[in-house]
Design a protein around this nucleic acid. Structure first.
Length: 530
RNA sequence: GACCGGUUCGUCUAGGGGUCUAGGACACCGCCCUUUCACGGCGGCAACACGGGUUCAAAUCCCGUACCGGUUACCA
């Protein structure tokens, strides 16, 4: 039998980080065993479900590249089937009509109300002591026919236990006594979650249900429904939860955008990096390795590697440097710095495009992309031999673009850095970081005249490549009896607007002779300073 | 309250009775490299929740306690 799993989010918000991981694990398992990964939108709570949310969830999945098989199922389309199932159970005496008037929906905090009531009922109430449970079927029919509203509840057997072997949590047993006669159909005819899930999973032929641990007790209720319906329950695998730094629930209300998948997409994260991070939250291949490609994750995925304890998603709300989990940030930087250049290029292109920094000249002309890369980036920027310099691409060309991306990515964390910190490489219109101006320019007033003077030296140069640049700048620093670093850092600030970056010689060379000269002479940074 | 689950460095984790003076990663802190730096290299700090057993031997097995989480809806 081929494995069929599903990811079944309810569209009441964007794709939450925990849901994203659930989707990932479903996907990994399906691909690992050659099964199908299906998608179902659980939109039966009309009041809370929105189309926008559905779109956002789909966007998130698409971004993570978790492609689903077959058509998306919308649970609301199946309401009639759910009702029919409830009616069938009613007809078979496996469910009953509850004529108890619907209770007033509690105050603001539903959960607290539930806990409160549970405490109050402590030891008194049998979970199945409903007065209508054993109502004579004829009476029941008569009252229903008279138009009296009723809910349909499952008639949970008196004695026995539900048992299943959870693929993560192991053997799970629960006394029927601990499960109430759950409502299948609301008095307004609306099918409820547990019924809908079971019916849909049966209809979709789901063999393995992989979802958050918050559904562990639902599994028992659902098994009861499967039993009543006479259908063999699927396998269950529950995943540990992802918690907030205070070990509480991670929610949009409390934690805001950090939990949304779109935040990461918009912040310049690579899907591959984020997937990698997500996979390691609650799962381990049992080896000392952190970086896994999707293919490796698929290959190594197993339920044995999944934890039983919840994981904390660590971040500091008011600290920009740690706005999200440090490891996620590191992972993304690691990908940007080390992934094959040809895979990174399209992302940089998209980023530059959206920042209006992309130029058609960066487009490869005729040459295959890989060919270009081989000629410019096999050698790391730091140990590029002199011979390479001969081929140094001209600014504005595709080769230059490739060369530049490879040079500047070494200190970048997100795709956004290419259009922000790296803006000066692609545009004449860039800002100066006040801290950099303060640190590298304002402190050394002499640079105000020295840097334009250095520009004059550059202008006199024939070839503008690292070795020549180096001797010119060194001679200049000696002449001015100052430290080379002062000149270099001042120039860096003028040329790039920021205080950090690759080797300054490489920066000069990459920015190019003409632009370097112009920028060294510019007064803009000085005027922007304090 | 009841039922269910969990508890190894700040965080993610390795660990399935001896190889554990508990390993890796991130973060943090030093040092080195360097013209600077958020790259890189080297190093440091830092954990088996607690109490009882079982055993020659326990982070690993059993029991209890504490704490944390989930569920307990005519929500999903």
């Amino acid at each position: 039998m081929t494995v069929r799993v599903r990811f079944a989010p309810s569209p009441t918000g964007y794709l939450h980080i925990g849901s994203a991981r659930t989707a990932l694990f479903n996907y990994l398992y399906a691909r690992n065993v050659g099964g199908k990964f299906l998608l179902r939108i659980e939109d039966t709570d009309l009041a809370r479900s929105t189309e926008e949310s559905t779109r956002s969830i789909l966007d998130g999945l698409k971004w993570l590249e978790l492609d689903h098989d077959e058509e998306i199922v919308f649970q609301s389309d199946n309401a009639d089937k759910h009702r029919a199932a409830a009616l069938k159970l009613l007809a078979e005496g496996k469910a009953y009509r509850d004529f108890t008037p619907r209770a007033e929906p509690g105050g603001q905090n539903v959960k607290e109300g539930i806990a409160e009531r549970a405490r109050a009922n402590q030891g008194v109430r049998n979970m199945r002591d409903n007065e209508y449970r054993e109502l004579d079927p004829d009476d029941s029919d008569a009252r229903a026919a008279a138009g009296e509203p009723f809910a349909i509840r499952l008639k949970v057997p008196l004695d026995g236990i539900t048992v299943f072997e959870d693929k993560v949590y192991g053997l799970q047993e629960r006394n029927y006594d601990d499960t109430e006669d759950l409502v299948l159909l609301r008095s307004d005819g609306h099918p409820l979650y547990n019924l809908a899930v079971v019916c849909d999973d049966i209809e979709m032929g789901i063999t393995d249900v992989i979802r958050g641990q918050d559904h562990l007790t639902n599994a028992h209720k659902q098994i009861l429904i499967y039993n009543s319906l006479g259908v063999e329950p699927p396998n269950f695998a529950h995943l540990p939860l992802i918690l907030a730094p205070n070990k509480g629930k991670l929610s949009k209300r409390k934690h805001g955008e950090v939990v949304s998948m779109t935040t990461y997409r918009d912040a310049g994260f690579l899907a591959a990096a984020f997937r990698n991070f997500l996979a390691l939250l609650g799962w381990s291949a049992g080896e000392e390795k952190e970086i896994y490609s999707l293919e490796e994750l698929v290959e190594k995925f197993s339920f044995e590697g999944i934890h039983r304890s919840n994981a904390v998603f660590n971040f500091k709300e008011n600290d920009p440097r740690h706005w999200t989990d440090d490891k996620a940030q590191w992972m993304n930087a690691e990908y940007i710095r080390t992934m094959p250049l040809e895979e990174l290029l399209p992302f940089v292109k998209a980023e530059l495009k959206s920042a209006k920094l992309w130029r058609e000249e960066y487009e490869p002309e005729g040459r295959a992309l890989s060919e270009t890369i081989a000629s410019t980036s096999d050698v790391g920027p730091d140990e590029r031999p002199a011979a390479m310099a001969i081929d140094l691409p001209e600014h504005g060309s595709h080769d230059w673009f490739v060369h530049t991306v490879d040079l500047i990515r070494q200190r970048f964390f997100t795709l956004k850095d290419f259009s922000r910190q790296g803006r000066a490489y692609f545009s004449e219109d860039y800002d100066f970081d006040p801290a950099a101006v303060e640190k590298n320019l304002s402190k050394f007033p002499d640079l105000r005249s020295w840097l334009p003077e250095l520009a004059d030296r550059f202008e006199a140069m024939g070839s503008f490549m690292e070795p020549e640049i180096e001797s010119v700048v060194k001679a200049f620093a000696e002449e001015k009896a100052t430290k080379l670093g002062i000149i270099m850092n001042g120039a860096r600030t003028l040329l790039t607007g920021v205080a950090v970056g690759p080797s300054m010689l490489a920066v000069f060379e990459t920015i190019g002779q003409e632009r370097s000269i112009r920028r060294l002479r510019s007064r803009m940074a000085w005027n922007s300073g304090v």
